[in-house]
Design a protein around this nucleic acid. Structure first.
Length: 568
RNA sequence: UGGGGCGUAGCCAAGUGGUAAGGCACCGGUCUUUGAAUCCGGCAUUCGUUGGUUCGAAUCCACCCGCCCCAGCCA
């Protein structure tokens, strides 16, 4: 009874509101720029797992290219071997495909190391780059401040020959890490700090995940990214707002080199309440074992969300709904949850599961009798069919569905009251059995045989329909309830000297070990999604070897909880 | 305090001189064998502020206010 949510064609961004990048593309096509060709790229650094924030970039990069019949490459931005790893490249490829996208070409910035090196030599020959012997601290000191201009490096005016010689020896491995850099010769007094003779190459005697020990000098992001775009003939290079300052440098290298003029466009990154979208901080959670791993269902990573039970289409629909602009904003988590529920409601089969079992004996039901009740699998999808559910004298109902002393708006089961058991019978509570400590251990009820299937031939109305499972037939299951990982809307809101981990929600995971689920799911495969009627959406966790374990993806909206809270 | 970006409802967001789309949230009501879903209705006389231009301004101009980014040999 699993569901297939993979799509066969690349989803586009058609359904969202228009946005400024799409408008630019439409104008460019209209004016015949690049012969109307649109090409983008998704350029992750393989130094961590992809998260929901990356999903926005992915949907834009791939979606917009697809919308205009263009290409989108996946290019790993692997210019810093100290942080990158093939574990991450594999995870990234899996996540992009799971989201529903397929790249035209797979590239690595490291593919371009030889070309980048040649271009560096060209810039040196043109007098536009030089080898600098200043160390990191000295470079910083020379850079000036936000309000004061920097000062020229004493090595700024070396001869072309000396620069060529030194740069070749840097590549040869003659110098230790950090001893020299290759810098672009631009303007130490530029108001834009990224133009104050930025470092192009640094010495790093480190093995690279792809090029091994072939190189000991590695290009910086600014020197690699634009040229990589240019080499691939990317027309529209989308990135997040914080790179706005880098655009001038992006353009500078392309202009000096006289190569294909890719253009960079910046958009706002996704931010969500109660959620951290920083690879560095997510890494910390993983490394310090504050979560189970990158795919912990509480993580905002795509792998975590996949394990939690999110569908790719829910994420895509959500991304389309938030739009693209240049405003720094924080989207409320409820917006994501809305699209999650919307998708799951449409796709997922319903079953019954009792999370907190309360035993009910139906006194006038024949001992040993078992009836098979018909249950609809998905009222939103008639093709989903129906199934049989066993009913017997002893059942479990949800503890929350009974109140000995019901508050005014509570219309579920209570002494003397009648409710419907979904797809089964109407029952009336006759007696409450308690143990010596006064806790309710069992309810004695009677049923009306004329109401089989939950129907009321006499037209009588019952206020409530509750879910149940047959005690003798139900399967034991563990259910994991998840709540926000962070208690504060902004997890970074901490007092001076404190850490975001202090905002971790101690109740983000609640394990219910003694749940009872209907027998139809006995052989459910890992990842299978269900709606537990009246409770929420769940999926079978990958760790279900010792019995069924369900992750609660998201609860159903609960207006009773709201009413009750309001009254309290 | 230098440079850059951005301010439209609680949140996201269209709108680029002709009189404020849409979504989330919220509030009513409808329907209901899921207190779900559905369906219907409500929700900015006003677009950060103040002036100006104009028959007419969220849109153009000026000033002011606020928020974000940049001083990694990270990306």
């Amino acid at each position: 009874m699993g569901i297939e949510t993979e799509s066969t064609e690349t989803p586009s961004q058609n359904d969202g509101p228009s946005n400024f990048i799409r408008n630019i593309m439409i104008e460019d096509i209209k004016s015949g720029k690049h012969e109307g060709r649109i090409q983008t790229r998704f350029p992750p650094e393989p130094n961590g797992y992809l998260h929901i924030g990356h999903a926005k970039a992915i949907c834009l990069d791939f979606g917009l290219a697809a919308e205009f019949g263009g290409k989108c490459n996946l290019r790993f931005d692997d210019t810093n071997p100290s942080k990158e790893d093939t574990e991450y490249v594999n995870a990234i490829m899996e996540d992009v495909q799971w989201l529903g996208f397929q790249w035209d070409n797979l590239f690595y910035a490291s593919d371009y190391f030889p070309q980048l090196y040649e271009w560096a030599i060209q810039l040196i020959k043109d007098g536009k780059a030089y080898v600098c012997d200043l160390n990191a601290d000295e470079i910083r000191a020379h850079r000036g401040t936000l309000t004061e201009p920097g000062t020229d490096s004493p090595y700024r005016n070396r001869s072309v020959d000396e620069n060529l010689n030194l740069f070749a020896r840097m590549k040869q491995g003659e110098f230790p890490d950090g001893s020299r850099t290759l810098r672009a010769k631009i303007d130490m007094s530029a108001p834009n700090l990224s133009l104050r003779d930025p470092v192009m190459y640094r010495i790093l005697h480190l093995a690279h995940h792809r090029t091994g020990n072939q190189w000991c000098i590695y290009p910086m992001y600014d020197y690699a990214h634009g040229q990589s775009d240019s080499i691939e003939r990317v027309t529209h290079s989308m990135c997040t707002l914080e790179f706005d300052n880098n655009r001038a440098l992006y353009n500078w290298f392309i202009e000096q080199l006289g190569i294909f003029p890719s253009r960079q466009y910046e958009f706002d990154r996704l931010a969500l309440t109660h959620t951290l979208l920083s690879k560095r901080k997510l890494l910390k959670l993983v490394e310090e074992r504050l979560v189970e791993g990158w795919d912990d269902p509480r993580m905002p990573t795509l792998s975590g969300m996949r394990r939690r039970g999110y569908t790719p289409s829910a994420i895509r629909n959500f991304i389309a709904s938030v739009g693209v602009s240049k405003t720094n904003g924080i989207t409320q988590l409820q917006q994501l949850e809305y699209f999650l529920r919307q998708d799951l409601n449409r796709l997922v089969p319903r079953i019954m599961c009792v999370q907190k079992p309360l035993r009910v004996v139906i006194e006038n039901y024949p001992d040993g009798q078992v009836e098979e009740m018909d249950a609809i699998n998905n009222p939103e999808d008639s093709s989903a069919g129906s199934r049989k559910i066993p009913f017997s004298k002893t059942i479990y109902i949800e503890d929350d569905d009974f109140r000995e002393d019901p508050p005014s708006k509570f219309y579920r089961l209570s002494p003397g009251r009648e409710v419907r058991l979904r797809y089964a019978y109407l029952i009336t509570c006759r007696e409450v059995i308690k143990d010596s400590s006064g806790t309710i251990v069992e309810l004695r009820c009677t049923y009306d045989p004329a109401t089989r299937g939950g129907n009321t031939p006499d037209g009588r109305k019952v206020k409530s329909t509750i879910h149940w499972v047959s005690a003798d037939h139900a399967l034991p299951a563990e259910v994991r309830l998840y709540d926000n990982l962070f208690v504060k809307e902004d997890p970074n809101e901490v007092e001076e000297g404190h850490d975001f981990t202090e905002n971790l929600n101690p109740d983000s995971l609640q394990v219910l070990a003694d749940c009872k689920v209907e027998p139809s799911v006995r052989d459910a495969e890992r990842g299978t999604k269900y709606q537990f009627e009246r409770l929420g959406y769940y999926c079978v966790d990958r760790n279900s070897e010792d019995g069924l374990v369900f992750n609660r993806t998201i609860g159903l909206r609960d207006s009773w909880a709201k009413i009750e809270k309001r009254g309290a």
